[in-house]
Design a protein around this nucleic acid. Structure first.
Lengths: 213, 213, 213, 213
DNA sequence: GATGAATGAGGTTTCATTCAT
DNA sequence: GATGAATGAAACCTCATTCAT
């Protein structure tokens, strides 16, 4: 049945430093298998085998198979999504980036690096979003918060400064997200490598033109 | 294990008109369940129950659970993907669309309508692309053919006419695809409704600006 | 569960001349499949397919799968086993064969020809004897009757005439049967061909020596 | 589908001492059921019930139903058939048995004892030989090797010593085998008891006469 | 008489989970 | 903490049999 909602994930909050070597091996094996074959097509015995531990050990720390998923996705959404929010918050409150281009480049680059660093987690999240209603709702809400929160404020800021076109914030956000995804998806799905700087330059160039007032 | 490759799907080629009412019900139920809960989380007894038939009936026509998936996805890739190709071919060979804008609008509109009409199939295909290596490879190849074929020629055509910027064809394609997807994905995933005309206008407006020479 | 006992077979007593062409095809297909793959590994749909009829037709004449087995084995035991008995009866009552050698040659030849003509049926019977308790008992009884009946009388006759050794009738019977089987089994199991006359000569030569007084 | 060939059996080579009590119970129950009702008429739930374990346990050690068959027949062919070969080898190379009668008695006795000890396994093998093509071929080859190998040499030896008749080796072998089987088959099929010494005496007496030069 | 779609009981197999050692 | 044998529910699938056409 997989995860109920992201709130549950937060509550797990397992301290990775408390895990034994074997338990970490279980997490590592699960990450690989879940992202390669999918959560449902991975058996706990697959995990035990790849991790080089007994089946019992798999269940020692993580009470259920869902628990493993939570332990993998927990840190991911817990540490990374908030980081995105605060990152945007800073950009606007501190007005660190006076020009829209600089802001755009930072956002694009960060997101591309993030995707590269979290390919496997992303693939697992993607699976769950498609198959799990709760997961879908949670992520929808998360994006809404992002748009109505820090990122939305940033966009509004640049619009008021006359630096970008006066379309609804959500529309602008969609285009930025889609353009980044056009670079990120091949990486996430096929695991192909990418030149981060070149990708950033290209995406920024296109978006600057497309969003010019 | 799910589908091996799209070639297999073609060979299935089951004539839907030959199916009995109950077998069609099986297909309908499977489409709903696979797209809602995912292939792996749907049991054949779920399907039988929703279709109002016995489990035996599920297996009478579609020898395996994978066979049902093939029967659903077969017509989808068989009839629709080629249609997309021929659609682009015609646009360019007949130079039916003298202006890039008109071309763009047609492409965008067609794709959005396609997504709306095939939400469930798309979600299933998406699942498989994420979890199934063969499916992933097949689709990668398919896109390559599209870009190096009719659609690529169309883009080149407009570039030579000086109507769009001189970026590599693949890059231009990515932006068009990504922009369309920014409208299509919410529909496909959340099943939200959409104003096709408005979406087409907006996407065309953004792309025209972004791809201006 | 297969056949209950041979008495049931007799009661079937279906007149082969009453069968339609399709029903005969069912019997022919069943004979081949049962003897090749075994009764349990043959499905009624296998039979229908090989016979070129619908599954319904298979059940029109033969109410159950066991019914088909009965229809195949019925004539076999019904017509052939009794024939064996009467054959022996005649040999002794009519004293058609004054010499033991002539008697032996006739018996051996007849049995070998019988095996060649009924390879498939024999294989099916053999299967059932091994797996079915009732079948086993029935055949044990049948042999006992044969030995205590006509064949036993024949052996006794030749013993009293001083033509063969004075061992118990059952023991003599066993050796004769075993020697014949040493030629019959390869034929029945592997379907290998055989020179009937040569086999008869050899078997008779060995048995005459072995059973000499 | 049952076993592919005897080579596969050898490779199984599961160390019976490594099996847990429950797994041995599974093997014991399977041996009884397969030999009583036949492989195909025995369900894995039958086995679990008789063994007093869960169905899952049946599959823990023996991955498939065929795997159980292999685990039963493996040791049988692995340990016993070679023993037969070496037994004959010794008789001739060491010329332990100067008289043909002594040789014959040893062979007969050993085979009868073997049959008594392995009734159930033999019945299972018999089933497979009748229904499974590969099993049939494997056993045919095995017998050919026996005849062209140690046993054939022994027979030739006694022929050259003028102790038995000058018939082809295969023919002599057939008569010996058939005579032994005339005692073994009732035991194997009906499970009837037998006086080994008496049977040996009788069989030897008959064969000595029948094979006298 | 013939068809073949439909049934459902039951077979084989998988797998998340538990627990004694 | 770690093991792996054991469990049993539930998954996928087969097949003898029925019945409306």
């Amino acid at each position: 049945m997989a995860i109920k909602n992201l709130q549950d994930l937060f509550s797990e909050s397992l301290d990775e430093t408390q895990l034994t070597a074997k338990q970490k091996a279980v997490l590592r094996a699960s990450l690989k298998l879940f992202s390669d074959k999918g959560f449902d097509r991975t058996s706990t015995s697959d995990i035990a085998q790849l991790a080089g531990v007994s089946e019992g050990t798999v269940y020692k720390q993580f009470k259920t198979k869902d628990g493993i998923l939570a332990a993998i996705l927990g840190p991911f959404v817990q540490q990374v999504i908030p980081r995105a929010a605060s990152e945007f918050s800073e950009t606007i409150t501190a007005t660190t980036y006076p020009s829209f281009e600089e802001f755009l480049r930072t956002v694009i680059k960060n997101r591309i690096i993030f995707v590269i660093d979290n390919q496997r987690q992303l693939r697992i999240v993607l699976q769950e979003i498609i198959t799990d209603n709760n997961m879908r709702q949670t992520f929808t809400k998360l994006i809404q918060e992002l748009v109505s929160g820090p990122l939305g404020q940033a966009i509004t800021h640049y619009q008021q400064a006359g630096l970008i076109v006066q379309w609804p914030v959500l529309r602008v956000f969609h285009y930025i997200a889609a353009t980044i995804m056009s670079y990120a998806i091949p990486v996430a799905l096929a695991g192909s490598s990418i030149n981060t700087q070149k990708a950033t330059d290209e995406a920024a160039e296109f978006l600057l033109k497309g969003l010019k007032p």
